[in-house]
Every structure is written in structure tokens, then in C-alpha cells.
Amino acid sequence: MKEFNEDQMDDYLLGRMKKNEVQVFNDKISKDKAFAQRVQERQVSLKYVEQLGDLDLRDRVKKVHETAMKNLAPEQSFSIIPLLKYAAVIALIVIGGIWFLQKELSSIEVYHKYYEAYALNFGARGSAGEELLEAGGRYYGNQEYENALAQFNAIPLAKSSAKINFAKGISFLETNQFTQANAIFQQLIDQKDPIYEDHARWYLAMSYCKEGKMKEAKILFQIIATKPNSFKQKEAIEILKKI
């Protein structure tokens, strides 16, 4: 089985690994427990670095805030007569409305307008794999996606399912690990999964949008819009009119 060094682990965790490598990396995680453990430890370390970085950035933003508060000019009040003021506001609303209706949405705007994480429930039972599933499901429900991934990734391959893979896809997407998210959604589509195929197509499109790949997303929206009874068909039709 292929070995990965720490730099490659970083590439995986920071979402910089190539798509074909990600698949091999994921396979190794599911088959090699010691390796999965090392990846999880590395992820914890990165999370601490993130917190240290946040501390630094917060200090910096606070300083900017203090300076900005000193420099902000006092607010000016309108001196025009009220009628004129209302007329101007109405005109602005009309112009703004026309502009808004006609304006094309960018991929990131599509993502923010239409994306919401899919709600999934994972029941509690007893065996080792199911405890991981329950914990992963709980983190997923609490929108703690990195923790959810750590649990889901530790579930043995034999106990994995389309539902777990789908939850992993959403978690990768939420944590901006697009290569991994896209690979999972694509796999569910390719396998024509009876439950998650359509859902995977919508979330793959959302992932492309978040990543800024509108061309790829558009192709998927066209499929969703034309496939009878597809998940989010109405939204896909709406998006196609706006992009």
C-alpha cells in the first residue's frame, strides 16, 4: 500500500491534494488504522494552529477597529424635504429591484443563496463501528463537521454505507475540502445510488459553486432541471435563469 509523508498529509488536510491521490489516501485511511490515527492527530494539531492564527488575526482586527472608530466621521443627516426623501427612496428601490432581478449571480452567490446542509439522522446502537457512527452523526447534527469527519473516517470500510459517504461529502464541503467532497459525490452519482444519487448531484453542483467552478456546476444544474422529479429541480431551474 502506498505510503504518505507528513507534507502529503498536510496537502490532504488543507484540501490541496490532487483528486486521484485523495482517493488513494481515503482508501489508506479506511484500511490502515495506525495511519488513520496519525491523520487524526495531525488534524488536531492543525486545529490548534487555526486557533493560534485566529488569536493573532483577532488582535489585528481589534487594532484596526480601534483606529477606525477614532477616524469615523460623524454621521450626516439629510436636509432635503421629507417628500423628496421618500421619492428618492422609492426610486432607488425600483431601480435597485430592476437591477437585482436582472443581475447575474456569481457562483459563490448561488452557493450562499441556495446551499443548506442536508439533515441526516444516525441512530444509536451498540457495536464499535456504530458508536463511531453515532458520535459522527451527533457532531454532524451539531454542525461540527471536522469532528464528524474524524469519526466517520474511523468507521471500518466494511461497515460504511452510502449514507455515511454522503454525510462525509457534506462535511468535506462544509470544511472546504472540495477535492474530497467532489470525489464522494461523484462516486454516489456514478454508482447510481438509489437514495443519494440525485442528492449527490445537487451537492456536487453546490460544491463547484463554492469552489468557483460555475461551468461545471451549470452542467449539473441542467441535468437536475431536466431529470423528472429530481431533488431540488425547482431550484435548479431558478438558478439557470439567473446565471
Binding site: L57, S107, I108, G212
Partner: peptide, 14 residues
């Protein structure tokens, strides 16, 4: 916003 910019996720914002 800063983090999104550092991760190249603002390039498409109009």
C-alpha cells in the same frame, strides 16, 4: 472575509 480571501474563495464575488 480575510480567511476566504487567503483560501482564494473570493475570486468570483461580484
Amino acid at each position: 472575509l480575510y480567511k476566504l480571501a487567503k483560501r482564494d474563495q473570493l475570486d468570483d464575488v461580484t
